[in-house]
Design a protein around this nucleic acid. Structure first.
Lengths: 149, 149
DNA sequence: TTAATTTAGCACCGACTTGGTGCTTTTAAA
DNA sequence: TTTAAAAGCACCAAGTCGGTGCTAAATTAA
């Protein structure tokens, strides 16, 4: 159904969370509780993000994770690629497993589609997800509330 | 990995094929052979497209499938929705299974992403996939060939 | 009428992916 | 030394995906 996995979803939520928490270390337990997501799975996701050097990790008491770099430097595409592997829209693109060079007439257009989808994901940085950041996009609920004020 | 399923892939290929074959009926066997895809699976896909009244079906000898309407009237999004079910980018969007209204800060941006991805898929019609049609986008291979001439 | 061709319907299966957990080790602070 | 936390690795259940089997219904041709 063309959807992101939970890994990406939790990852994006966690990064947004970290972004809004200044530079302090946050533990997985803390984050999982606040975000109401399964702690162990979140831990796996954060491990991957740390391996990709997107966030710093600190072991031991008062340890946890913290943003390594400016959130505006990373896009949703980057995160999805880290957590789900290479984004490959179909098998049917030149150079991939589509060997129907002669008969397959769609990979021209499909490549364009894939390119544009990639463009969309690259058009959003982590800052867009991070509350408090000037680039943040409000949810419908939040927007409604701010209108009431 | 954010990819289309084989159902969508075969469906799009088949529709491109039908679009390039004037208005005659084409049998599944014929199409599957020409496109080098598994016939039975292609048959399932075409059944779904026929149920959606996107193509006409005709049983019996010399039967098969044929385009019902103008290819420019259908977008890639339509096909994907028919063959994969409702496109739902994440669980995390207002009104969906994301019940973390208060804590989840990403569904504002995620909704925008989903909207734009939908926009991309809606920006391509079947005509873009159909060789012979003026809107058709050539594959890299075909383009290379035409340059050689 | 009969046989052949083709779609329609429905159920099913094996393999892979996904979401999630268990357990042990390593690091670091109190 | 104890405790809190991440790192590593393996594992499992459920779901999805690609694909197939089988039977019925429709249509054409002989």
């Amino acid at each position: 159904m063309l959807r992101l996995t939970k890994r990406s979803e939790y990852g994006l939520m966690a990064l947004a969370y970290l972004g809004s928490r200044a530079a302090e270390f946050c533990s997985v337990r803390e984050m999982a509780e606040d975000m109401a997501v399964p702690a162990r799975l979140l831990a796996e996701v954060l491990k991957d993000l740390a391996r990709a050097e997107l966030i710093n990790s600190q072991r031991g008491p008062n340890g946890g994770y913290q943003f390594a770099k400016d959130p505006t430097h990373f896009t949703i595409f980057d995160i999805v690629e880290i957590l789900e592997g290479e984004v490959q829209f179909t098998n049917c693109a030149p150079g991939l497993t589509c060997t129907r060079e002669s008969s397959c007439t769609i990979h021209g257009a499909i490549s364009k589609v894939a390119e544009q989808v990639k463009g969309v994901l690259d058009g959003f940085t982590l800052a867009h997800l991070t509350p408090g950041h000037p680039d943040h996009m409000m949810s419908a609920a939040t927007a409604a509330k701010s209108l009431q004020v």
